[in-house]
Amino acid sequence: MSRARPDAGADPCAGCPSRPVARLERLGLEARGADFVVALAGNPNTGKSTVFNALTGLRQHTGNWPGKTVTRAEGAFAYDGRRYRLVDLPGTYSLLSTSTDEEVARDFLLFEQPDVTVIVADAARLERNLNLALQILEITTRAVLCVNLVDEAERHGLRVDARQLARDLGIPVVLAAARQGRGIGELLAAIADVATGRFACRPPRASVGEPRLERAVGELERLVRERFPGLGNARWVALRLLEGDARIVEAVRSGRIRELERPARRPEAMP
C-alpha cells in the first residue's frame, strides 16, 4: 500500500521545506523500526481515521458517526528521514475511563507514553473538543492540536485563530481539512518538531482553583513524587488518587504505576 516517495532528482521541489507533504512517505502497515510513536486522539467523529489514512496511506474504513473506531488501529509513515508509528485511538469525549473505549485511549496515553499525541478536534465544536484536549494535556505535554474540518466550520461562518490557540495551549496548532488534504503538510512538520524536540511544548498547568483543594493536591503530589521519583506527571496521578479513580488506585497498589517512570521509550529502535 505504500506509495513511493517522489524521486528527489526528478522533482526539484521535493526537498523544499515549503512542501512538507513531498517529504512524506506513507508506509502503510510497515511499523517496524519506528523512531517515534505518535498517537491520534480526539472526540468521536472528528476525522481521526481520515487523518490516519492521509498519513499512512492505509484505507481504514471511515464512517460519519461517533464511535466508529473502538479499537486502536496502527500504521506507519516516514517523514524527513525518520520513521513514525501512528496509533489511531478510539474517539472519546473524556478520559474519565467509564467505558472500554475510553479506557483503551487513556491506558495508551498513560502507559505507552507516545512521543507525540495529535489531538484531532472539530473546528465547529471547538469548546467541547477542548475539554478533552485539556484532559489529554494533563497526562502528556508533548502534543499537537489538529483543528480539523475547518472547511465545514467556514461554511458555518466560523473562523479559528490557530496562533491564539497555540499561545494559550503552549503546543503547535494546525488548521486542517483532512478529507481534502488541507493542512496535512503543516501537521507533519508540527509532529516532527515536537518529536525531535525542536518545539518545546509548555502547556499551562491549570490550578484547581480553591486554595483548600490546591493544598491537598500539592501535599499528595509531594507524596507521590517521594514514592515514585521518576514519575513525569505526578500531579495527574495525585489528582486521580484524590478522586479515588479505581484503576489508578489499583495501579499504585500493584506497582504498575512504576511503568510511568520509564523515560519515553523507543522500543523498535533498540537493536
Binding site: D161, G209, E243
Partner: peptide, 22 residues
C-alpha cells in the same frame, strides 16, 4: 470541581480563538 475548571478553561480558550461572525 475539576471538571468545572476544565470546562471553564475550554470555554475561555474557545471564546478567544473562535471568530463567530456570521
Amino acid at each position: 470541581t475539576l471538571l468545572e475548571t476544565i470546562y471553564a478553561e475550554a470555554s475561555r480558550l474557545a471564546e478567544r480563538a473562535v471568530d463567530r461572525e456570521g
